Simulated scan of single mutants.
Amino acid sequence: MLIELLSPSRGRVGVVARGARGPKSRWRGTLEPFQSLFVSLGGRGELATLRRAEPAGRRLTLPAERLASAFYVNELIMRLLRRNDPAAEVFAAYAEVVGGLVDSTRDEAQLLRCFELQLLRLLGYGLSLEQTALGQPVDPAAWYRYRPEVGLEAATGNAADVCRGDAVLALIAGDPVDPGLYRQARRITAAALAPLLGHRPLESRRLQRSRPSTAAGNDTP
């Protein structure tokens, strides 16, 4: 089995787990997504060889309706992190968002926006949203769009790529507010992430868009 690990000291690590798919594999039930493990690695080259793996805490069980968001977080890590770069802060942010997704009392959209902002900052692409690119304060009732390498710009109308100022302010504060604001603020983080992700679509976003609509609206988190 080819697997990807996220480690504080080594960042993203590609690993070969020999015999992991066999019916008598010693790692049956251990090498599962989103779980924290103690591992021992060997070998040289781009892919390490898994020598030992055991749980490093309680097993996390994500609600079925939040699996798409958790896979979205994994896909961001896979697409944006280079292998074998130390990533202690990214590891901490990842552990926080996955732990939050397990807790059904925490707002899903807020968790994702906070993670996206943290990841952008840690990769050196932090967003400045306190004012527009022209130095104007954010008006909660006005509309804005985010342009990479330019910043926040005033916009007109409720176009597909704009959001209201109150959603921008919620994104800055990171406090629990109307979940609809964090869903709308995805337009800001999506615009910031787009140049880094390239043109290949995110498979996890396709999965999220296939989820049934809810009373809160049909925007994905």
Rank of each mutant, 00 (worst) to 15 (best):
L2H: 06
S7E: 14
S9R: 04
V13P: 01
G14D: 12
R18W: 12
G19F: 00
G22W: 05
P23K: 13
K24Q: 12
S25Y: 05
E32R: 04
E32T: 01
Q35S: 14
F38I: 14
V39E: 05
A48Q: 05
A48M: 11
A48C: 09
T49R: 15
T49P: 02
L50A: 10
E54F: 05
R58N: 03
R58D: 07
T61R: 03
T61V: 11
L62N: 00
P63I: 01
E65Y: 12
L67C: 08
S69V: 03
S69P: 00
E75F: 14
E75T: 08
L76C: 10
I77P: 02
L80C: 04
L80G: 04
D85L: 03
P86Y: 06
E89A: 14
F91T: 00
D103R: 15
T105L: 11
E108G: 13
L112S: 08
R113Q: 15
C114K: 07
Q118I: 06
Q118W: 10
L122F: 13
L123D: 08
L123N: 07
Y125K: 10
S128V: 08
L129T: 05
Q131K: 09
T132F: 10
A133V: 15
Q136K: 12
A141Q: 13
A142V: 06
W143I: 14
Y144G: 00
R145P: 05
Y146I: 12
E153G: 02
E153N: 02
A154N: 07
A159C: 07
C163P: 02
R164W: 00
D166H: 01
A167H: 00
V168M: 07
D175S: 13
D178F: 06
P179N: 06
G180C: 08
R183L: 00
R183N: 06
Q184W: 02
I188H: 04
I188C: 02
T189C: 14
A192H: 09
L193V: 04
L193F: 08
P195I: 13
L196M: 14
L197H: 03
G198F: 12
H199N: 09
L202W: 09
S204V: 04
S210D: 13
R211D: 03
R211V: 00
P212H: 02
P212G: 06
P212T: 01
S213F: 04
S213W: 07
A216Y: 03
A216Q: 13
G217M: 05
T220Q: 01
T220G: 03
P221I: 01
P221V: 03
